[in-house]
Write a protein that binds this DNA or RNA. Sequence first.
DNA 1: TTTCTCTGTGCACGTTCTTGCATGTTCTGC
DNA 2: GCAGAACATGCAAGAACGTGCACAGAGAAA
Lengths: 252, 252
Amino acid sequence: MLTDQRHQLIRDRLAAEGSVLAGELASRFGVSEDTVRRDLRELAKAGHCRRVYGGAVAAAPFAAAPIGLRGGHAVEEKARLASTAMALLSSGQTLFIDGGSTNTAIAKAIPCDLELTIATNSLGVASALSDHPLVELTVLGGRFVRDLGTCVGADTLAAIAQLGADLFFLGSCGLDASRGVTAFDSAEAEVKRAMARNSAGIVIAVTNDKLATAAPYRVAGAEAIRHLVVEKTAPAAILADFERQGAEIHFA
Amino acid sequence: MLTDQRHQLIRDRLAAEGSVLAGELASRFGVSEDTVRRDLRELAKAGHCRRVYGGAVAAAPFAAAPIGLRGGHAVEEKARLASTAMALLSSGQTLFIDGGSTNTAIAKAIPCDLELTIATNSLGVASALSDHPLVELTVLGGRFVRDLGTCVGADTLAAIAQLGADLFFLGSCGLDASRGVTAFDSAEAEVKRAMARNSAGIVIAVTNDKLATAAPYRVAGAEAIRHLVVEKTAPAAILADFERQGAEIHFA
DNA sequence: TTTCTCTGTGCACGTTCTTGCATGTTCTGC
DNA sequence: GCAGAACATGCAAGAACGTGCACAGAGAAA
């Protein structure tokens, strides 16, 4: 990757989100943090950003976070989950990624040197991937649901039906060993079911607050989960239930 | 292979991807890296690209816009155009909005109290509208084109075919009274044509630099334009041609 | 045809740039 | 104040670079 490209991508991200983290950029670009720090120093010198401890913030005219990315809750935990989930990826894979702030964090963490084919119905995920040169991105359109930041409906289902994926990153609303994966919205659950049907494996990354909770609409049974990415502090008893049903546990 | 051919191929590549790597070009052309470096040096001298360590990036106007959601160029002018275009909107309308930074500016300018139904294949437009409570938003999915920030392809066309709109905000690449509206990309032009077909009226908002220019792919004739939103400083002679063909001119 | 010139190309050389690591310093949260 | 993270700096390895030079092929002149 060209130094210049890196600089441009950093500026894009600054414009889009107002701030960047050195460590996150390093893993995304596949370079050392030193290199990123050097980049940030130069950009700051050129007036494109202001250097702060841990990263940099946009210089002056930063409008507002454009998308429903303001999943301000538990940002660091989600970034850690995302970084752990990267171990499941390798070049050549095809992925479904649906909505949710954890999945957006995962999309942001995907390194630039992975060649992937990704289909998503989430605007946040699509935006996060829109600058990945090696990712072939398919947007699964449909009726946009504001609260979820995703597309649902017949069009979305039809588009999913034409695709198949190796892994499905399922943004879970509720996760319970007996009730399985559940969602708050009927149409959303239907989309998730369609993605699950057309995927070889399901990956779920959740923060502790989602564990042992359930929402009204059932998406899949716990036995359908292939990989479960959780925080280090997740209760062992709960995890054991999932493990018994075949899930592989990954600690962030 | 002729030197001239190589130069042309490099320029094509720069236009398509925004940047090139010396090593990659060398192996592609079957020449030494020295030769490629010489080529790049010459192209840079002629102003066709900017030389950077490891390769080259497209010259000024393009380098500022390879990534979809970037709108750095002529921001204020576009905001003025957008604000003027608002006069064309009223509650209850259905709109198509396609890609381009001017259209993103228009989407951002849409007031929150308008009740609209909007379909777009642009990620930037969708993001701008994602927090509008009264806008019913349909995302027209498909293959995401990084340089345009929009979705194109069969899925996009199929989704458009199911919809109809009162107005189509057409992001124009080139606009000429005799050659009509033109686009740089074949698939993009096809999507624009489909939207135009299913709309009662076409709205085009352009900065002066787009006037009297043309791109390879034809989208629609000038007579198809219902509303043309231009800067106050737009050349009167050019506007007269459009007016003769039925366009209503709006000055920002 | 032969010879000459000119241009484009590849190679060799020394130089410059980028990058990651090691070092010591500064900052932040507890 | 302390531990750990983030930082700046210096350094070394490797990649990319520019330059000079030799060689090959095309075209012009003899």
